[in-house]
Amino acid sequence: MTDAGGGESFEVRLALAQKTSAKLREAIGFVIVGQNEVVDQTLWGLLAGGHVLLEGAPGLGKTLLVRTLSSCLDLKFSRIQFTPDLMPSDVTGTNILVTSADGSRHFTLHKGPVFGQVVLADEINRATPKTQSSLLEAMQEHACTIAGVRHAMEEPFFVLATENPIEMEGTYPLPEAQLDRFLLKVIVPSPTEDEMTEILVRTTGRDRGEPPKVLSREELMILRALCRDVAVAEPVLRYASRFVRASDPTTPGAPDLVKRALRFGAGVRGAQSLVLASKAVAMLDGRAHVSFADVQRVAKPVLRHRLIRSFEGEADGITTDQVVAGLIEAVATRPEAVQQAMAR
């Protein structure tokens, strides 16, 4: 995608986006076996300008996926291995006293790994909340304040965090505010037998080398702008609004499952994320507009980490994915009259 300038028509840009995303998937697939849905969802986050939280058992290729993605993108990659003793300054960087050649001493900012373009926050739940919070400003505002000086991030800024849901001892669950900053929470599933076999073939033989770089910084920025230009009709926006509102158990008319299983629902940021992710999906699908199906497709990764289960929900083992599935069933996409006409 070398000729993806802003002068091209929307339709051409849309076609190029499709083509580029296909290339990206192909490049990632050079290293990652299977996990198509995980790759797609990661791309949604990348194109929509959001951050992605990857959750999965150890050894499922989360870190590898992020590293491969960063390799495919001509972007500055940095990695932070979160540990309990990691300090915020280890993330953001700090001013250090430097002696210059003339013997004078002054403080010089030593930027932390957060100042990358693709930041891998590996096992983010192993750090303390204080350290986790050091990412908040960078994730939300794409800026970082160090010693009273605000430093803007270099765009595109994309945080990919991983967390391990199994080893809970010595971990610090991400606070809600932190979780809300992630556009998507992607569940990394175990590979199938075929995928596992292919993984064994690839990883136990000769090194296959690095995947090609298929997307430059400029191209990515164009795609992000294109994603923002995808149109959303009012009925779809209303559907997204109804969907998110229905996840709030205090909303009148909320489904019984929501009232039973949730303590808190998604908020405005959730609705925004829903639409943004839907736009990415539509764009990758070659459409200049969002459909109801797009919203439903992104609902689980967008909302699953934003829904806070109630005691009853936890006790009954109701997952947030089940609640979202219930919402997809319960919330009507079209006006009642149209729904009735369709049903006949």
């Binding site: 929307f10 230009d229 149109a231 009709a233 200049a288 507009h289 369709m342």
Partner: peptide
């Protein structure tokens, strides 16, 4: 849209058509 499986293309087009503005590329595509 529902009957034709048009993924809300027509609904979006109706809205964009009403908004006017020929310079909107997405509008023309939709």
């Amino acid at each position: 849209d529902a009957k034709l499986g048009a993924h809300e293309t027509i609904a979006t087009a109706i809205e964009l058509e009403g908004q006017g503005g020929d310079d909107d590329s997405a509008r023309a595509v939709v």
